[in-house]
Design a protein around this nucleic acid. Structure first.
Lengths: 253, 253
DNA sequence: GGGCGATAATTGTCTAACAAATGCGCGCTT
DNA sequence: AAGCGCGCATTTGTTAGACAATTATCGCCC
């Protein structure tokens, strides 16, 4: 009646308590925006001290499952997990993975292209005016002369996100956006020259045009061309970096 | 020289400290399996007390970024994030999302099918004997008479995971597996009848056969057939459930 | 030389208290 | 009587020190 299960095979109390609360939340006993009891009461219920219980709560907070507010009407509340938050978390996980794992740029670009190709038919079939407008807005933003490389890259990510959203399938859009958001910064460690940007924008315009015409096959062709161009850019940058390293082997790191 | 940035706009200390450490880990200053200083020293460095610092560490632990071990040679260590862990986390996030968000089965099934179709050409081109063997193993496991619904569903998930791995693209496999793992339990809230299982296994065998023959188009056809069948099953189950509800509106919950 | 116990290092947990924020209501003022 | 501001209660955030539990290591004894 107090601490759910006594112990999870010697796991720290804060961990098993976090899992117990997590199960409660997922089970549906606590709907979104529901308020949990105060920390003192929770601590008593689980039979631990307040700092220990707080560690458990912080674990859940780190997973975006709960939020806390101080003050009189404060407390701990169950978070509503929306598509936005999920996308961010998904992108964070994937980003961490690809940035700490030795992997070539080629499979990353290939994965991005493959997901985009998968979305193309659905996007062409279901796109609405708002999607076309969003695409045009990103193109306009990206071709502005005062857009720096960082902003250009972010806009590029958003451009592809709109393509996912045009499928009208939130789960599909979620995974596409997560992958693109994680891959793009890796592919963009090079800083674009202006003519590279222009070439990319040409591709983007063509893609938007094919989407407007609901021409799925043509869109696939353009997506492949864009992927090929991006990959060529990355390869070129890698070759340059390698060439800069080989002639003078002992320069200042 | 002590606490990195003083405060993140009034955010709790444990949160900003967690973010600071997270940045340190991601920045690469602390490689995998690196040992962090002890809690006391860290607390002094960040200018907080040990419980507060521990809350920060628990946040990171909840994200699988660190692990802790007690004892003399214990401490806090940076976790190596592998494809397995990422897949689990990705599946957990997506599962939480789709299980707390009102969404029809149809887009879920569509997303799954779309991702599988995207993987099909690559999988056919690159599959190895090990993949075919893994597929056959899952088929054999699934058709065993003592396999219950739970195990059947898990095997189904693994079957699709192998399809993703056959693309030889870990990022693609990651997202496919994450989506399938999250969607499958939702589609399988119904318990399969034996003839449903048999029909699914027929499809699985056909898919494995098309993969072996490197017949991408044929595989796509089979995948679509499987998706259509699965969706029909779900629809039928939903209709049954709805029909059971309408005639007697006030029965016992 | 090998097994075994003391030991030290380190995380896990507890207790008690204070600080800070925040909504609410009371009382003061107009 | 109405409006405004100040205190107060509630709740999370943080601190301090101490003890418990665990585990590798080193020295001691056989």
């Amino acid at each position: 009646m107090n601490s759910a299960e006594p112990d999870n095979r010697g796991a720290p109390a804060s961990e098993s308590i976090a899992e117990a609360l997590r199960a409660l939340i997922l089970e549906g006993s606590l709907g979104p925006d529901a308020r949990l009891p105060g920390e003192q009461e929770l601590a008593q219920r689980f039979g631990v001290s307040r700092p220990t219980l707080r560690e458990a709560l912080k674990r859940l907070a780190a997973q975006n499952l709960i939020r806390t507010r101080r003050g009189a009407a404060g407390g701990t509340f169950v978070n509503r997990v929306g598509w936005e938050e999920a996308r961010e978390q998904l992108a964070a996980t994937t980003t961490l993975l690809v940035s700490t794992t030795p992997i070539d740029a080629e499979p990353l670009a290939e994965a991005r292209l493959t997901l985009l190709l998968a979305c193309a038919p659905l996007a062409c079939a279901r796109r609405r005016e708002a999607h076309l407008a969003a695409l045009q807005a990103e193109i306009a933003f990206a071709e502005a002369p005062d857009t720096d490389d960082r902003a250009f890259c972010a806009s590029d990510v958003r451009f592809h996100r709109v393509l996912g959203e045009a499928t009208d399938n939130p789960l599909l859009a979620l995974h596409l956006a997560g992958a693109v958001e994680a891959v793009q910064p890796l592919l963009n460690m090079l800083s674009y020259r202006m003519r590279d940007r222009a070439a990319i924008l040409v591709r983007h315009r063509a893609i938007a045009e094919r989407l407007e015409a609901r021409d799925s096959a043509g869109m696939a062709t353009e997506l492949e061309a864009l992927a090929a161009y991006t990959l060529a850019l990355v390869r070129e940058a890698q070759k340059l970096r390698a060439a800069r390293r080989t002639p003078k082997a002992g320069d200042a790191d």
